[in-house]
Design a binder for these strands. Structure first.
Lengths: 193, 193
DNA sequence: GTCTATATGTAGATAGAC
DNA sequence: GTCTATCTACATATAGAC
């Protein structure tokens, strides 16, 4: 049960997260967040000292949500291969948003990495969650090059989102996702030989 | 031979291009461009009406330079396979900059694509240059899926730059570039069977 | 806790002397 | 063509009444 203050705070963070994703952090103003959340500009400073503090909270909730998602896959699927396939389905499941706005993790890291922003490392930590989870799955498959495979898969998925976003091409996502599913299966086939 | 006005204009565009790459378009101010180029802020408006006009010129010169590079490969290498391998070497050749700032084409497209910027399409045209050139090479290899292969290669290289930039990992670039060289060779091996 | 009014800085852009 | 001084708008941030 949330009290009113917590509810307001969440509204601000959710509106900010949505807008940071759709417009980018720098392009999003307090005025934008105010109209999206319905909470007056001036009130933000009761909940957050600075815009960066909002960014901090946004990254925090995104990490929480992603961690829960990864945990749910661990529970739901018995084998690492099934889990990995499930993780690839993220591409298809969020296809419309990816086409319009790119990858929420990737684009934020690109923006903050360029500017050498104080929150660059926090943004990267979103990737770390996925990277570490991938390493666990590849290790469970018995691969001793688990980290390299994890990085490779990360890069493949990021590349797909960048190009799909640039060209607004949904079909490309599906085609490349299929390639990745096949790549996963071929890894296991190699291993079983 | 350039007159003084043309020289000044070039200095502005070159400074802007460098800063848009290193900091992003939105993070770069006229003050930044002034101190980088040595030309006073106020003078910009003699050469350009708006900041967007500078962006336009920056994209234009980047496209010109890239076109020349692609043409030089066409001249220098006899076979499409050699040309494709040469294009992959861009990753290694510009490794230090990619680590720090990402891909100049990719990150600009990501920024302008998010904001639905008026210059989104112009930025994408930089990718089109490379994409069309890749299609020509794959067609010359006799592939009827040339465009899909071109898009695939584009995505692979973009993914590598995003992850290498995020993790500031030079070794990753070299490892993944090597994978791509192998992938190219495997394509030709398939074809020759 | 909430809201309005306002401070402060800096962005892009302009005017006009030289 | 070049430069300084300045405008206007809007960004983040603050103060203080309620």
């Amino acid at each position: 049960m949330l009290n009113k203050a917590e509810k307001n705070r969440n509204q601000i963070v959710n509106a900010a997260s949505k807008l940071f994703y759709r417009q980018g952090y720098e392009y999003t103003s307090f005025t934008d967040i105010a109209s999206e959340s319905g909470i007056p500009r001036g009130n933000f400073y009761y909940y957050f000292k600075t815009k960066e503090d909002i960014l901090d909270a946004v990254i925090g909730t995104r990490k929480d949500n992603f961690r829960k998602l990864l945990d749910s896959w661990n529970t739901e699927f018995a084998t690492p291969l099934e889990r990995l396939h499930r993780s690839l389905n993220m591409l298809k499941n969020s296809e419309p948003e990816v086409i319009r706005y790119g990858c929420p993790m990737g684009t934020l890291n690109t923006e903050l990495g360029k500017a050498d922003h104080p929150h660059r490392d926090d943004a990267r930590a979103m990737f770390d969650l996925f990277r570490n989870w991938l390493v666990e799955q590849f290790q469970a498959l018995g691969r001793d090059d688990a980290d390299q495979l994890a990085m490779h898969l990360l890069a493949r998925t990021q590349g797909i989102t960048v190009i799909a976003h640039t060209y607004r091409d949904p079909e490309f996502i599906h085609r490349e996702a299929e390639r990745l599913h096949q790549w996963l299966d071929s890894l296991v086939a190699d291993y079983q030989q």
